[in-house]
């Protein structure tokens, strides 16, 4: 991927913009760069390597019978890409859609299972360089979101950025597995946490034994 440092230009306005700045700041490698964004007054980050582009929030086609953290699907240059309502995925209340609402397109999976997913966030902040020694492990408790979603806590001056483990947050197995439970009981929303926990284990088992 050709992403390089790009502290300016964000948040994005306009149709769409790939995160491929032409910045001259070559201080760090891509691995240590993070796209930070806001979700209900908390700052989170995804590793920049997997961020494909950032879209303005637009028309989303709802897919029926899906849990509400699957917002729907969008047309990304001819490909149909699912969009995750990150707030709902975290078990938080849905955010209000504003002018600053964005969809971050993230690539997950490896070689054969590569897939693009859109993630709805309240606003995109900037691309940051966070060195590994500035990242602490996830706290054992006290976080607003599931612990295994957190890859680490990045220190940012006096503040912390929650660096997300995208493979966990956007685990296709989980996103898909939850649906089956949901189909049986379509009208309940509050079970999300427990279901995640359970299907999370299933998901881990699956990925271990299913490569045939």
């Amino acid at each position: 991927m050709s992403t390089t440092d790009s502290k300016s230009n964000l948040p994005v306005r306009g149709q769409s913009r790939a995160v491929t700045g032409t910045g001259t700041d070559t201080a760090g490698s891509d691995e240590n760069q993070y796209l930070t964004f806001k979700l209900q007054s908390e700052i989170y980050a995804f590793g920049i390597l997997n961020v494909k582009e950032i879209l303005e929030f637009g028309k989303i086609t709802k897919v029926p019978m899906m849990p509400d953290f699957i917002k729907g699907v969008i047309n990304l240059r001819g490909e149909v890409v699912p969009v995750v309502n990150l707030a709902r995925r975290f078990g938080l209340k849905s955010s209000e859609i504003t002018k600053r609402t964005c969809i971050v397109i993230i690539e997950i999976g490896s070689e054969e299972t590569r897939q693009e997913l859109g993630v709805m966030v309240d606003s995109v902040s900037e691309v940051l360089q966070i060195e590994n020694d500035q990242i602490r492990p996830a706290p054992g408790f006290g976080a607003k979101i599931r612990n295994d979603f957190i890859r680490g806590m990045g220190k940012l001056n006096d503040d912390f950025v929650i660096i997300l483990d995208q493979d966990r947050v956007l685990s296709v197995d989980e996103l898909a597995a939850v649906r089956q439970v949901r189909e049986m009981a379509p009208e309940h929303v509050d079970e999300d946490h427990e279901e995640f926990g359970r299907s999370g284990q299933d998901g881990a088992d699956d990925s271990g034994g299913d490569r045939s």
Partner: peptide, 27 residues
Amino acid sequence: IKPLGPVFAGLSGISGSTIMGNGEVAL
């Protein structure tokens, strides 16, 4: 036909999606 992908693997009643002339996705 654009497949909906693994996230929607078990979705019943919907077999896929498509992009309409106006660029929107229809199921």
